[in-house]
Design a protein around this nucleic acid. Structure first.
Length: 199
DNA sequence: AGGAAGATCTACT
DNA sequence: GTAGATCTTCCTA
């Protein structure tokens, strides 16, 4: 059984790049009907506000990106190219930002994930931001869930404590990136999205 | 109405 | 590993 140990708001009220690094190795839990689907986060990207041309929030506060401007610590879900992408709002007090969850290592509910993704290849189930939302049946119905609450349909919990080394790279697929490397991943983990994988 | 968007899949070299 | 088609929302005009 799980020790459902979520993080406080404080964890998410920091620079998005720091939060993105610290989210690696944590466990994402999806409760679907009575089933549990879960995975370990192995790849993330940090996004900022008006200073970040790749951010949803770049052009200012709109209805569709409003969550990024509100308090840190909520799931933020939106669609790109027919894929739902899962983020967590994360930023310093009174700032703007979010962390995109780009890849998971499947842990529980793998048979359901295979069905959702229509593939038998475990490595292909959740190794991309659009893949993992499909595998875990995550849509914008779950938008706005508070990550500090337990017993929700979506949760981020501490999970197993383990050591690993972290790699970084420019963000993937963005038209205009910032100079810093804002993509983070667990080195040598085979569930990291394939392209641009280095370590 | 038209097009962009933080991606994925397939079909090739 | 790269190129091109295509998926679905939501934005701007």
């Amino acid at each position: 059984m799980h020790t459902v140990e979520v993080f406080s708001k404080k964890f998410y009220k920091r620079d998005p790049a720091l939060v993105a690094r610290d989210m690696l190795g944590k466990t994402l839990i999806r409760k679907l009907d009575s089933r549990i689907l879960s995975g370990k986060i192995v790849e993330t990207e940090a996004y900022y506000g008006r200073s970040d041309p790749a951010s949803r929030a770049y052009k200012g506060r709109k209805r569709f990106n409003e969550l990024m401007f509100l308090d840190a610590g909520r799931f933020f879900i939106y669609m790109v190219h027919a894929n739902w992408l899962l983020n967590i709002v994360a930023h310093m007090e009174a700032s703007v930002g979010a962390v995109l969850i780009r890849a998971l290592e499947p842990l529980e509910g793998i048979e359901v994930m295979k069905k959702n993704r229509d593939t038998k290849d475990k490595r292909d189930l959740t190794s991309g931001p659009g893949k993992l939302t499909k595998a875990l049946a995550i849509t914008n119905e779950l938008n706005g869930i508070d990550v500090t609450r337990t017993n929700e349909q979506l949760m981020l919990v501490r999970g197993e404590i383990e050591s690993f080394s972290i790699g970084s790279s420019p963000r993937i697929g963005v038209k205009a990136d910032l100079p810093q490397e804002l993509r983070f991943y667990i080195k040598r983990n085979i569930f990291v999205s394939r392209y641009l994988r280095t370590g």
